[in-house]
Nucleic acid binder design. Structure first.
Length: 425
RNA sequence: GUGGGAGUAGCUCAAUCGGCAGAGCACCGGACUGUGGCUCCGGACGUUGCGGGUUCAAUUCCCGUCUCCCACCCCA
C-alpha cells in the first residue's frame, strides 16, 4: 500500500470543515484591517531562503527540500530550487519584483502549505500550513511606525478571540535593530566566554554559532547562569527603545494583554526590533501557535533598491486547528434534504427536483431508484438530513411531493413550487 | 539528527507457556415490496506495518527496517 509520506497527512472530512471555518474567520478579520491576499509560488530559488532566512539558521542549514532543476532550457538547468520553508521571503521577493513599494503601504496576507524536513511530532509536520500577514512599504508610507506593530498584534488578539481560542498568551520583546543586535551579540559572547563551560552542551554550541539562542535554553541547571547574562533591552539604541515603548503603550491603551519576555528570541535571522509569540497550553511542546516580528532590513538584503521596513507573523494553522479541537466539538456539514426516488424511472424526476432545489441554494443529497424506501430513510438519517423528499409515481402525477421532517417526524404533502420555501424554513 | 513508547478488521481493543487470530462499534443483506432511529437473524471483514531468523508451529521469541506517538533540538 502506498501511504502518505513521513510528516505529511491527509485532512479528511469532517475535520476539513473546521479548517474552512478557521480560514473563513481569518479572511473576515483580516479584511476588517484592510489586508489583501497574496499568493506566491510553492517553490523558489534556493538563494532566496539562504539569503532571507539566513544560512546559519537550522531551517536553511538542514531542513529544506532542495533539488536541482532539470529543465531543458540552459537557463533552467542546474538551477537550485527549494520548497518554501516559510512565506515571508517569498512575499518580500514579490514586493521587490513587482515594485509594490510604488503603491505605498502594502498589507498582505497568505494561507498555504510550507515544507521543512524535521522529525514529525505533535503539532509539527513536514508539510504544514501557515496563515501569515505582512505590512511592508517604503518608510515614508509609515511601514516602520510602532502603530503598525500594535495594529498587527491587536488584530491577532481579535482573531484568536473571534475563533474562540481560550487562554492565549502574548509574549513580547525587542531584539533591536541590526546594529543593536551586533553590539548585543558581542556582549553576549563576551559574557558567555567565562561561564559557557558549565552550561549544557547545546548552550556551548550556541554560544559560538548563535548566542541569542542561549537565552531560549530550557535546561533548569542553566537558568541561574542565563539570569546573569546581559539583556537585549540594555543594548537598544534610543530609537529602538522609543519604538518598543510606543508599541507597548498602544497595546495597553487598546487593552490587549501582553507579557514582556526579555528572553524571547526568534530563530530566523531577518527579525529586528519587535518580536513576539502567542502561546497556548495543551499543545504539547509545540506551544507556539504563532510568531513573528519586524524585519526592517530584509528587503534590502534581498536586493531592493529602496529600504522597505516591514512586520509580519505566521500562524501555525495545524496548531490553531488543534487548539480549537480541544474546546469545540466537530461541526459536521449536513444536507438540508435527502431526495429519495422511488421506483423505476424516478431517477430522472428526482434529478430534475434536485436541480431546482440546489439552484435555490438548498443542500441536497440524491438517492437512487434502486434503493428500497427503508434504505433511503436510513441513509437520510445517517447523513443527518433535515428532510427527506419522496419522489414516487403518485407524487410525480400530482406534482406534489411527500416531505418529511426527520427530526419531528412530521410529514406533509407539498406542491412542487413550494418545496424550496418549505425546506428553507 | 538524538532518546523513549507503540503498530492486530474501517475504529477502539483482546488473544493464557509459542498451538485454528477474536469481541464491541461501524459496514452490507434479510425479517420489513411506499416510511428511518428500536429489535432480531445472517454476512463480509486480516499479508497481525514490512523483511528476515529460530521452531514441527511465531501476533507471541530474536535481528533489521518503516511508520506513528512523546520528548530533545528547532520552529509555526
Amino acid at each position: 500500500m502506498i501511504k502518505a509520506v513521513r510528516g505529511t497527512r491527509d485532512l479528511l472530512p469532517p475535520e476539513t470543515a473546521l479548517w474552512n471555518h478557521v480560514e473563513s474567520v481569518v479572511r473576515d478579520v483580516f479584511r476588517a484591517y484592510n489586508f489583501q491576499e497574496i499568493r506566491t509560488p510553492i517553490f523558489e530559488e534556493t538563494q532566496l531562503f539562504a539569503r532571507g532566512v539566513g544560512e546559519e539558521t537550522d531551517i536553511v542549514a538542514k531542513e529544506m527540500y532542495t533539488w536541482e532543476d532539470r529543465g531543458r532550457a540552459a537557463s533552467d538547468h542546474g538551477q537550485s530550487l527549494t520548497l518554501r520553508p516559510e512565506n515571508t521571503a517569498g512575499v518580500v521577493r514579490a514586493y521587490i519584483e513587482h515594485k509594490l513599494g510604488d503603491r505605498g503601504l502594502n498589507k498582505l496576507y497568505y494561507i498555504g502549505p510550507q515544507f521543512r524536513r524535521e522529525r514529525p511530532q505533535k503539532g509539527r509536520y513536514r508539510q504544514f500550513y501557515q496563515i501569515g500577514a505582512e505590512v511592508i512599504g517604503p518608510a515614508t508610507s509609515g511601514s516602520e511606525s510602532p502603530a503598525r506593530d500594535a495594529e498587527l498584534l491587536e488584530m491577532l488578539a481579535t482573531l484568536l478571540d473571534r475563533l474562540g481560542i481560550q487562554n492565549w498568551n502574548l509574549q513580547l520583546n525587542s531584539v533591536g535593530s541590526s546594529s543593536d543586535r551586533v553590539r548585543f551579540n558581542d556582549a553576549l559572547r563576551e559574557a558567555l566566554e567565562p561561564v559557557k563551560d558549565k552550561m549544557c552542551g547545546d548552550c556551548q554550541r550556541r554560544a559560538v554559532t548563535n548566542p541569542l539562542r542561549v537565552l531560549d535554553c530550557k535546561v533548569p541547571e542553566d537558568q541561574p547562569t542565563i539570569e546573569t547574562l546581559p539583556r537585549v533591552y540594555d543594548y537598544l539604541d534610543e530609537a529602538s527603545k522609543k519604538h518598543f515603548e510606543e508599541v507597548t503603550t498602544i497595546l495597553e491603551s487598546v487593552g490587549v494583554p501582553f507579557e514582556i519576555n526579555h528572553r524571547l528570541v526568534r530563530g530566523l535571522d531577518y527579525y529586528t526590533r519587535t518580536a513576539f509569540e502567542f502561546t497556548h497550553g495543551a499543545l504539547g511542546a509545540q506551544n507556539a501557535i504563532l510568531g513573528g516580528g519586524r524585519y526592517d532590513g530584509l528587503a534590502e538584503l534581498l536586493g531592493s533598491p529602496q529600504p522597505a521596513p516591514g512586520i509580519g507573523f505566521a500562524i501555525g494553522e495545524d496548531r490553531l486547528v488543534m487548539a480549537l479541537q480541544e474546546a469545540a466539538g466537530d461541526l459536521q456539514l449536513k444536507p438540508d434534504v435527502y431526495i429519495a426516488p422511488l421506483g423505476a424511472g424516478m431517477n430522472r424526476e428526482a434529478a430534475k427536483l434536485a436541480r431546482e432545489l440546489r439552484r435555490a441554494n438548498i443542500v441536497a443529497e440524491l438517492g437512487d431508484e434502486t434503493f428500497r424506501l427503508k434504505k433511503s430513510f436510513e441513509t437520510a438519517d445517517k447523513i443527518g438530513a433535515r428532510f427527506i423528499l419522496i419522489v414516487g409515481e403518485n407524487e410525480v402525477k400530482a406534482d406534489t411531493f411527500a416531505l418529511k421532517n426527520l427530526k419531528s417526524g412530521e410529514q406533509v404533502s407539498v406542491p412542487r413550487a413550494e418545496l424550496g420555501q418549505r425546506i428553507h424554513l
